[in-house]
């Protein structure tokens, strides 16, 4: 027996709203980047948690494709929403997230983070976490496109995206961060603070993939 039209349309509504939910998660991830230290936020913190949920929402159809193997029939409805008010709701919510939350609010949050970077410096803190948070918030659309590009479409898409993001982080972003670590080392040297941790971090940022290989070889 075919499911009622309303149920099918509700499923379509939920699936079509998944990218919007992913955008909300990315905005929350950007805000989470500034809570606590950057290493804490990146691995195991709020940033990591919201990034994970963004990836889950973007790979939801692929995740649901596992259900038949558990003995739960889950055929996803294709096509557009047939019920008028539901289609309007989906269109309105997607429009709200895209044009208000992503385009306007996230940009305003980024501007406040730039202000916070200056205030952090006034208090003797470090401006970098706030600047990185602002950059992430301004680049949410590009990050979304990047995650979509890494989506393999297979049932393992969630893990594939995470693998690809790790590769992107280790192979593209970390070598650039090594340049910032060199600057940090010089700054520490001038201000009579320990330099060796920064030197070790510079070498580490340039050899992340190799350290991963070292750990797997040890196992």
């Amino acid at each position: 027996m075919a499911p009622p039209q309303l149920i099918t349309d509700f499923m379509r509504l939920m699936l079509l709203l998944a990218p919007s939910a992913a955008i909300i998660c990315l905005v929350l991830a950007g805000l989470g980047l500034r809570q606590g230290s950057v290493p804490d936020a990146l691995v195991g913190g709020n940033f990591a948690k919201w990034m994970f949920w963004a990836i889950v929402f973007l790979t939801l159809p692929q995740l649901i494709s596992w259900f038949p193997s558990f003995g739960v029939p889950a055929s996803l409805p294709s096509g557009g929403i047939g019920t008028g008010w539901m289609a309007n709701l989906q269109s309105g919510l997607a429009n709200f997230v895209q044009n208000f939350l992503l385009t306007r609010l996230a940009t305003s949050f980024a501007a406040f983070f730039v202000l916070r970077a200056i205030l952090d410096t006034v208090q003797g803190g470090h401006p970098l976490p706030s600047i990185l948070g602002a950059m992430f918030l301004l680049a949410i659309q590009t990050t979304l496109n990047l995650i979509n590009r890494y989506n393999s479409g297979a049932s393992t898409a969630t893990a594939d995206v995470l693998d690809s993001l790790w590769n992107y982080l280790a192979g593209t972003l970390c070598p650039i961060a090594a340049g910032l670590a060199v600057i940090g080392a010089i700054w520490n040297f001038v201000s009579h603070r320990p330099v060796l941790p920064m030197v070790g971090a510079t070498l580490g940022l340039l050899t992340v993939s190799s350290i991963w290989k070292l750990i797997t070889t040890m196992m």
Binding site: T142, G179, I183
Partner: peptide, 15 residues
């Protein structure tokens, strides 16, 4: 606007 470009330009500007 991408995070990669932002980080790259930040590093170049600072360095």
């Amino acid at each position: 606007m991408s995070f990669y470009n932002g980080l790259l330009n930040l590093t170049n500007w600072a360095g």
